[in-house]
Amino acid sequence: MADTNMAGGGVSAPRDAVALYETHRAALRASKRVWNILALAAFAVCLGLSVWISQFYPERLASGVPRIFEYFGTIIPDLEWSNLFAGRTEEGRAVPGSLTYWYTDFWTYAALIWETILMAITATLIGAAVAFVLSFPAASNLAPNSWVYILSRRFLELCRGIPEILLALVFVFMIGIGPLAGVIAIAIHTAGALGKLFSEVNENASARPIDGITAVGGTWMQKMVYAVVPQVAPNFFSYAMLRFEINVRASSIIGFVGAGGIGQELNRVISFYSDDRVLAVLILVVMTVTVIDLISERIRIGYIGRENFS
């Protein structure tokens, strides 16, 4: 309200200023109230439309919610304490109620999780390499000319614009079912997402070392390698590690469209069975993601600590 006060008090006598202030205030409050009511009405309309379009009606919900709990009931494993750690019988059968029985396909899952992690590493490395190369022409302060700048920016936007899983769908069609489609889809998305972050880091790099290398007669490439890369490397590294964590998640679900990894198995057990296998795979996926996050965090902090980077 300070500005209204000043606008009134600047020219007129004190008493007028108070009156003016009061009228201004009242007008402002009234217009604000109108806006608030309008916004609330718009919100209510949106909410009503959303409920209607997605048919989110109480009776549907009432019939759906019990089924949700029913479903979660079916995927809980039937564990018996007495048999929990029982091994296989002499015929090679697992005892019902034991962990071995629950995780009959453990080694299949483990192999798929291993594949998932490999997919994430490969996609992160390839995507980060492309992002690294393009982040210099895509930084407004470093681009050698505006053509290269615009082209590399647009290319990176294109790469991150399309959701990974849609890209994976297309690649599965092109090169067939398997992890390759997933790796390529995630790598493309990673290139786009990291390219944007990297180029923002580059734009914040100090110009002084760049001037220094220009003054010794350095080429554009030499300026990048000697003056920019040493400044930005720690940030690049932590962004790439964060992206790796995201990519582990992405590669664990990209199998839904047939693009490899544990997602393929997850999709299969959820779609075709309603039993404890669903929970078995889900637990493994959540554990993998958590462990990878912890490791990656340790590496990140270790590296940054070593580089005295704060």
Binding site: S54, Q55, Y71, I253, I270
Partner: peptide, 18 residues
């Protein structure tokens, strides 16, 4: 992941926006 939740809820309440 949200997509996994989606899959789970499709199993529980059927196909569709719900």
């Amino acid at each position: 992941d949200q997509l996994v939740w989606g899959l789970v809820f499709v199993r529980a309440v059927g196909l569709g926006p719900l």
